[in-house]
């Protein structure tokens, strides 16, 4: 069980909590990479998904993008971008992260918009809402659960890829793991991996909470489950 105590010791060592390669710095770096990539990906994919979903076009595109995203190894794209024109550094990393974050947001956002009951949209049109109002007041709120699910999938993907990015361009929690590999320090490897896993699980939980808070139908469902008096 010395592996476990070694990891505990690693976390207890104050040296691992300060300086440019300390845990807080790495967490902030990881958070920064994740937020930047997710922000850019959302800025690109959310309006596109809403528009494609609203006009009902581009379904095959959205589905194929997801399939391609699954087949292309993130590690390979990171390496290709880094030894290619972008060079080693945050530009290559963020570009790779954005590329892999777009497909899940686009697909889920599109499906979310398409799955809005056509009768509801017709009714909204019937009472005189403009196309813009229909998107903002009817379709978007109803598409939020799936859209959010897409952003959650993208976030998990980005966090995983940002970890691998340490292999290529530095930065983030993956560095703790890599440094451990380099120095044959198994406790550091496992501690870094634990931090990454915790980071990912915390993100998952955050989105689960967000999804509950933003689901417009949740309240309706709650009302429905109240037993008859």
């Amino acid at each position: 069980m010395s592996a476990v105590t070694d990891v505990v010791d690693w976390f207890a060592d104050p040296e691992h909590w300060t300086g440019p390669s300390g845990v807080p710095t790495r967490v902030v770096e990881h958070l920064g990479l994740t937020a930047a990539a997710l922000g850019i990906a959302c800025a690109v994919a959310v309006p596109l998904a809403l528009w494609l979903g609203h006009v009902g076009r581009g379904g095959p595109l959205a589905v194929n993008l997801t399939n391609i995203g699954r087949a292309v190894p993130t590690f390979a794209v990171l390496v290709l971008l880094a030894i290619g024109p972008l060079g080693f550094g945050p530009a290559a990393t963020v570009t790779a992260l954005v590329l892999f974050a777009i497909p899940p947001i686009l697909t889920n956002g599109y499906v979310g918009m398409r799955e809005v009951d056509r009768d509801v949209v017709e009714a909204a049109r019937g009472v005189g809402l403009s196309p813009m109002q229909i998107v903002r007041q009817v379709e978007l709120p109803l598409a939020v659960p799936l859209l959010l699910n897409g952003i959650r999938l993208a976030a998990v993907q980005v966090i995983a890829t940002a970890t691998i990015a340490a292999l290529v361009a530095g930065g983030g929690l993956g560095n703790i793991i890599l440094l451990g590999f380099g120095t044959q320090d198994q406790a550091a490897v496992v501690s870094g991996a634990l931090l990454v896993a915790l980071f990912a699980l915390a993100t998952e939980l955050l989105f689960a909470t967000l999804a509950k808070a933003l689901d417009p139908m949740a309240r309706v469902r709650q009302v429905q489950t109240v037993p008859d008096p």
Partner: peptide
């Protein structure tokens, strides 16, 4: 399975290392 799938691959391989 949801929790497992959330764990990034690099971390997963590293956690199995010991």
């Amino acid at each position: 399975s949801t929790a497992l799938y959330t764990i990034p691959s690099l971390a997963m391989f590293s956690l199995l290392l010991p």
